[in-house]
């Protein structure tokens, strides 16, 4: 494997990793505060991509498309909290997990009922890659990297710099204590689900820009996203992002050794190995975010 080949594999891995990271971020937020793995995250992303494509077709602007996708998906996430997940407080995590799988199926089938199974795509100029020190980098890669960084910073800013973020972390640490000290769960949860929806939307639009928009696009990214959230340490958003990027890199860089069919499996093997050796995740602490 020459250096240039390795470098390009790393670039490809980084891009895949960023997409996993965005999905992992949304999963991790839900894991931290609402305390269950949300299997509907992938279909939130799919919904966002379709919403973005539709809005772009209607307004003619990619930015407007992406913005509407974020707004609509945040609304969808909040609605799913109000209608479904709110009612599981105090029950074992199996119930919301199963319900989130149901929600994932429901969302996808409502989508396909109205728009069918055909492939859609965003309208973006397709440009040749720029060769930079032997590595091919596409303009869209830079966009993706920038957007991911901004999204992560925004989420961290909300969590750590705002009063609602502080309350959110308090709920994540100890829901009973938080309730006892007078934190009203309602506002915290509404903010949380807005964040989850927005992160999923950014992930979905980015995924749609990188690939094509099909009904199963988000669902297919769910398991890697779970892996990232768990590897990053449950309830550690920064950890989920870093773990997502690491998973992408490992997948791409392992291909010269294991071939292309096993590359996804590699990240799952890594997941199982990590859980066995270090159940709190790579970057996790014994307790969620504090």
């Amino acid at each position: 494997m020459s250096a240039a080949v390795g470098l390009n594999l790393a670039v490809a891995g980084l891009i895949q990793g960023l997409l996993i990271a965005l999905a992992g971020l949304a999963v991790s937020l839900c894991f931290a505060v609402a305390r269950f793995p949300n299997a509907a995250t992938g279909d939130f992303m799919t919904f966002a991509a379709y919403a973005g494509v539709a809005a772009q077709a209607w307004t003619g602007s990619l930015l407007a498309g992406a913005a509407s996708a974020v707004l609509l998906t945040a609304g969808l996430a909040v609605a799913s909290y109000v209608l479904v997940f709110r009612n599981f407080r105090g029950r074992s995590l199996v119930a919301p997990l199963i319900a989130s799988i149901g929600l994932a199926f429901l969302l996808r089938s409502v989508l396909t009922f109205f728009v069918g199974f055909d492939q859609h795509s965003f309208h973006v100029p397709i440009a040749r890659a720029i060769v930079f020190a032997g590595a091919r980098v596409r303009p869209i890669d830079l966009w993706l990297a920038g957007t991911s960084a901004v999204t992560l910073l925004a989420v961290l800013a909300v969590l750590f710099l705002t009063p609602i973020g502080r309350r959110m972390r308090a709920v994540a640490d100890n829901p009973e204590l938080a309730r006892a000290s007078g934190i009203r769960a309602r506002a915290v949860m509404l903010t949380l689900w807005t964040l989850i929806g927005a992160c999923s939307a950014v992930g979905g639009v980015m995924l749609g820009l990188q690939t094509v928009v099909v009904p199963e696009m988000g669902w297919n990214l769910l398991l890697p996203a779970f892996a990232a959230a768990v590897l990053g340490g449950v309830g550690n958003p920064t950890g989920a992002v870093l773990a997502g990027i690491a998973l992408g890199l490992v997948q791409a860089l392992s291909t010269p050794l294991v071939g292309f069919t096993y590359q996804t499996a590699i990240s799952f093997i890594l997941l199982i190995a990590t859980l066995v050796l270090r159940p709190q995740g790579l970057l996790g602490r014994a307790e969620p975010v504090r």
Binding site: V84, N87, A95, P96, I98, G102
Partner: peptide, 14 residues
């Protein structure tokens, strides 16, 4: 069909 399955999962758990 898939929508009904999804809805049943949600409603039963709820």
């Amino acid at each position: 069909r898939l929508a009904a399955i999804g809805l049943m999962l949600i409603l039963f758990t709820l």
